[in-house]
């Protein structure tokens, strides 16, 4: 499975982005929409398209992002259901008194502190070598010009 943005494919093929959009709309390029204005296309369909239009396969295949199969199978449900109530009812009997927070920026840190102060064990997972995130990079903050640190 390959993923691309219209503009990117247009540049690779040397055509206008509207042309690529038209191809997708007409079905000539068999791609389906994915989140963030991206499109996904199967390898077979892409090879078929290249053959039909006399485009060197390598030129296209080498320049598009290859998606792992797991990601490709994820088509987010746009109409995900939300409810303000009654979530507990569907829960399992066992409840673990700990929470994992993924991301050690200002939001992750605040969530961690609040939970720890309320009697829950928290695992804070951060990708880089230290916490702080983007706010640590800021010099001052508006509207009080306080130091971000």
């Amino acid at each position: 499975m390959y993923e691309f943005k219209v503009g990117r494919l247009a540049r690779i093929l040397g055509v206008h982005r509207n042309t690529v959009s038209n191809w997708i709309r007409s079905g000539r390029l068999d791609a389906r929409p994915a989140p963030a204005k991206r499109y996904q296309i199967g390898e077979a369909a892409l090879r078929r398209f290249c053959a039909l239009n006399h485009i060197a396969e390598d030129r296209v295949l080498d320049h598009l992002t290859v998606l792992p199969e797991a990601a490709a199978s994820l088509t987010p449900t746009v109409a995900a259901r939300f409810s303000t109530t009654g979530r507990e009812e569907s829960m399992t009997q066992k409840t673990i008194g700990s929470v994992m927070v993924v991301g050690g920026g200002i939001a992750g840190i605040q969530a961690t502190l609040d939970l720890a102060d309320s009697g829950y064990f928290v695992y804070l997972v951060e990708k880089s070598a230290g916490i702080g995130g983007a706010m640590a990079q800021l010099d001052k903050t508006f509207p009080t010009n306080d130091c971000a640190m």
Partner: peptide, 8 residues
């Protein structure tokens, strides 16, 4: 093993 997850 955790009871819930917060993504930030």
């Amino acid at each position: 093993n955790v009871g819930s997850v917060i993504l930030a």
